[in-house]
Simulated scan of single mutants.
Amino acid sequence: MEPAEYASAAAEFLPLIPAEEYPHMNALAERVIAGTHNGVADFDFGLELILDGLERLRGA
């Protein structure tokens, strides 16, 4: 898949990822759309994503 295809798919799904509910996934989608996410895993971002998900599960 080409970068433009990733950006197009992210733009299509962005309305389904509200920033208030999924701040990290929304931010990632915004970066993909802007072309600033190069696909290299960012440890801090991934860790925050996992911790956010665990915190939500604990609160449920």
Rank of each mutant, 00 (worst) to 15 (best):
M1C: 01
I50Y: 12
L54K: 04
D52Y: 14
A7V: 08
T36I: 12
A19F: 04
L47M: 06
A7T: 07
Y6Q: 09
P23T: 02
A60Q: 06
E20N: 00
D44Y: 06
L49F: 13
I33V: 14
A29D: 08
L54M: 13
P3F: 01
D44F: 11
G53H: 10
D42Y: 12
T36S: 15
R56I: 09
G35Y: 00
F43W: 13
T36A: 11
P15L: 06
I33C: 04
A11V: 02
A34M: 04
P15Q: 03
E55W: 04
G46T: 12
L49A: 12
F43S: 07
D42N: 15
A19M: 01
V40F: 00
H37F: 15
M25W: 10
P18K: 09
G59S: 12
T36K: 07
L16C: 08
L16Q: 11
A60G: 03
E5G: 00
A29Q: 05
A10R: 01
L16E: 11
N26G: 11
V32A: 11
A4R: 10
F45A: 14
Y6T: 04
R58G: 09
L14N: 01
N38G: 15
V40A: 02
A34N: 12
L57E: 11
L57D: 08
A41D: 06
R56D: 07
L28V: 10
A34T: 05
L57K: 06
R56E: 06
N38Y: 04
L54H: 07
A4D: 12
A29T: 09
M1S: 02
V32C: 10
A27M: 01
H37W: 15
H24C: 01
E55N: 07
P23Q: 03
E21L: 09
A9E: 05
A41I: 03
E12S: 09
L57G: 06
G35S: 00
A9H: 00
D44L: 10
V32M: 14
A7E: 07
Y22F: 14
A27C: 02
E20M: 01
E5D: 03
P23M: 03
E48L: 05
L47Q: 04
Y6A: 13
E12Y: 14
A34E: 12
A4C: 04
G46N: 14
N26V: 03
I33Q: 03
L49V: 08
E2Y: 02
P3D: 08
V32Y: 06
F13C: 07
R56S: 12
M1K: 00
N26R: 10
I17Y: 08
V40W: 00
N26D: 13
R56W: 06
V40I: 07
N38P: 02
H37C: 04
T36M: 10
P23E: 00
H37Y: 15
H24E: 15
L28M: 14
E12W: 10
A7N: 05
N38S: 14
E21Q: 12
E5A: 05
A7R: 13
A9Q: 08
L49I: 02
